[in-house]
Amino acid sequence: MSVERKAESDVLVEVESVTKTYRTGNGLRRGTPTVAVDGVSLRIAQGEWVGVVGESGSGKSTLAGIVCGVVRPDSGSVRVAGQEMYARRGMDRIIWKTVQMVFQDPYTSLNPAMTITEIVAEPLRLWHGVDRREADRQAMALLDQVGLSSAVAGRRPGGLSGGQRQRASIARALAVSPSLIVLDESVSALDVSVQAQILQLLLDLKRERDLAYLLISHDISVIRLVCDRILVMNKGEVVDEHSAASLTEETADHPYTRRLLSAVPRMTASG
């Protein structure tokens, strides 16, 4: 489990031994509590692409929520750009200037009542105080950057394909100018060819903007293709951590990681 780390000063997000337990049930009957995340620590540095892989139910989305300030952990600490997230009220909102999210389902993650331009221009106006015309202009430039034509810009999400919608979601997140984008299964719902296009787009954007990503997927082949560093989650715990280059079925020291890897049909010899 030896992974080289970037310098302390570059650390964007620092999650330390966070735990989250969901208590279901109502006032009358107490359901069994689910430990979704159990003592997980995670550091993401500027410009780093971190992957989290694990079966469904292993706590990946909960961890993503914790990083974005959407899920409050029961214990442990979350620091974003050196600031303690729950130190004062409203911090969870302020961190969205640094950390943004692209969701899993392209069909429910864009407001159906707004046009694509409006959706992308909104964070420019609300977070950065850009006036309407300038925001629209910058939104068009962002849409162009994510590969959406001006023909799409005036449409509402209903007129877009799944891949186009994820591009629009990425443009919306970019409009905030974050340092980190959390992608929770953001390519999983797409066709394989479209997945590859979106991953290529993410790669290009990362080069241009020195972005960091936290890419979450149940599919280790996607993670291994693009990530610098890979965390393997199982039952709420990080059971294994690898740099992408070193991760093969032979070098994986945890049996769970080997199991995930062996489930993938071998496509490329170099992995």
């Binding site: 389902d105 069909y107 429910t108 407001n111 159906p112 009542a113 162009d144 950057q145 994510v146 590969g147 959406l148 034509s149 509402r156 209903g158 007129g159 877009l160 394909s161 799944g162 891949g163 186009q164 797409l190 066709d191 060819s193 479209v194 296009q197 787009l201 290009d204």
Partner: peptide, 25 residues
């Protein structure tokens, strides 16, 4: 960046689709 050719069709509104579209007639 140039427009990427999407081979994927624009899906008709499915069951998961929110029905909030203004202009939905």
């Amino acid at each position: 960046m140039t427009e990427v050719l999407e081979t994927e069709p624009v899906r008709a509104a499915g069951p998961a689709e929110p029905t909030a579209g203004a202009g939905r007639r």
